[in-house]
Design a protein around this nucleic acid. Sequence first.
DNA 1: CAGTATTCGTTGCACTTGCAACGGTGTCAA
DNA 2: TTGACACCGTTGCAAGTGCAACGAATACTG
Lengths: 146, 146
Amino acid sequence: MPQTPEPFDLSSYIPYRLAVAAERTSAALARRYRDEFGISVAEWRVLVHVSDAGAVSIRDIHQRVHLEKSKVSRAASRLEEAGYLIKEVNGQDRRLLALRLTDKGQDLMAQLLPIAQAFQTQLKQLLDSQLDAFDSALQVLMEDDL
Amino acid sequence: MPQTPEPFDLSSYIPYRLAVAAERTSAALARRYRDEFGISVAEWRVLVHVSDAGAVSIRDIHQRVHLEKSKVSRAASRLEEAGYLIKEVNGQDRRLLALRLTDKGQDLMAQLLPIAQAFQTQLKQLLDSQLDAFDSALQVLMEDDL
DNA sequence: CAGTATTCGTTGCACTTGCAACGGTGTCAA
DNA sequence: TTGACACCGTTGCAAGTGCAACGAATACTG
């Protein structure tokens, strides 16, 4: 009896669905600020963390926003070159950097944050009644061993 | 009155949470077959679609599995070089290719599919009661305009 | 102390990625 | 038929990526 391989439906496969949803969401967000501000996703994450945690090291960002440290390093360099932040060496531990937004960087965030907030609001409205379950499902996927 | 910029919590931001969850999930899946079989995510998606849709073109795959056509083209070339599939020109329209699995490719899928199925089962168990809401939330994010 | 091990951020390297442009093929209307 | 146009898959190129290795700074250990 020839064994037909069990059919496999990619469109119902959770890792695939997640990847597509994440990509669409990130792309939709990036569209809202990439052209106008020239900020990539990695740079955006760095900016957010520097913006609300003050003087942070590359390592801090690496650990808290799920970015490779080399990616953080290069994103920070691009942001520094663009004048959005400065790198100082930490006086306590001179291996560490202390990244801080410049005034220009704060201006940038003042423009970006409302855009980001509006998008979050839009997404919440779209998800509506599924939002809570969706959020706790994401929590599981972000924290549990897979 | 100095205006403190509204705080922005990245860890509750949906695009960020989705990106992290998707990355972890894809990485967990890739761990299960990358080392042993040397298959990337793009190659995996191409394989799945060729495996269950028979003779397909690059464009078909591009449209159905959310991959850039250049990415599909290069993934298909790697798979061809590894002996997992062959490219023929479509007789009806010689602009199109018809990709088909070789016997070696079918053997590969016979090994990969159970791994993939087991992972899906594991994820469903993890998500458990949130699964239905999670799935319909993903559906919204995959289909609606963002 | 001295000497080793560890941590931090950067960088070299090979590889991947996205995008635009290309040659080859098919379509359609004049 | 021919010419303009559209579509398919590939590829060149610049930019981004992950990983390992590096120098500099610090921590640890005897």
